[in-house]
Amino acid sequence: MTHKLSTKRRMYGLALESAIYLCAGITAALLIILILYIFYRGLGTITWELLTTQRSALRGTIGILPNILFTLYIIFTSMIIVLPIGIGAAVYLTEYTTSKKLTHAIEFAIETLAGIPSIIYGLAGYLIFCLKMGIGTSILAGALTLALIILPTIVRTTQEALKTVPDSYREASVALGSTKWHTIKTVIFPSSLDGVVSGSILAVGRIVGESAALLFTAGTAYSLVSNYFDALGTSGGTLSVALYVYVSEHGRFDVGFAIASILMIIVLIINVSARMIKKYLVYDR
């Protein structure tokens, strides 16, 4: 016995199904076209000179070496600042806290931090770090601002990892006479390392792509600085900021696409490695 659907119902199903495939197709096409177009326009304009020199008004050449270095400095600095705080906050939330109220307050704070847009971070960072603390527009001020931006990411991923550590580990350690801190140091931390690593990778991705928050805090400078510690105190634009400056202020779209290609390669690497670590995490447990 076969029942035929009414034409109306069949049309309804057909229309919706094609709409679904169409929209999924649009999403996929958008990304593929975006990546191919950026590489098509950008890869060819990446030259050795661009990567290894600084901008010279005299010779009229453009180099992004300072911006590459500033990006690395800012990643390094903000990670150093955020990792102890972020991991510490996650440990506090999963291992220490006894007050429900305080836990809720901290979790609410983390959610709020995650929702604040970069431009607000940029202004708040400028007011707090550059002006109030007197650090001035510098790599350090930018790194401090970024540390706030990536704090929620680090706390959340670490928390996830800590939650997967079985309670029996904790109990065994305590039963052997370990103190709480000793347990955390020797049992909890090693077991949650992969979570911290995957959180850090995501955070690096966010730092590399950030521009609005850095415009007022780290500035847009593009001169080579002799070493890391000098750089901390000087203004410097990261790659994303440099892209914006070269495109909007100098009309150098070739340089813009070259930087965009570099950024896309970094994003791709981060994406793949984050996924590989996730896989490893799943197999591990």
Partner: peptide
């Protein structure tokens, strides 16, 4: 793919 779309910096979207 979707994650990648989320990871693209806003200045790159702006440029394109």
């Amino acid at each position: 793919t979707v994650e990648l779309l989320a990871g693209i910096p806003s200045v790159v979207y702006g440029l394109v």
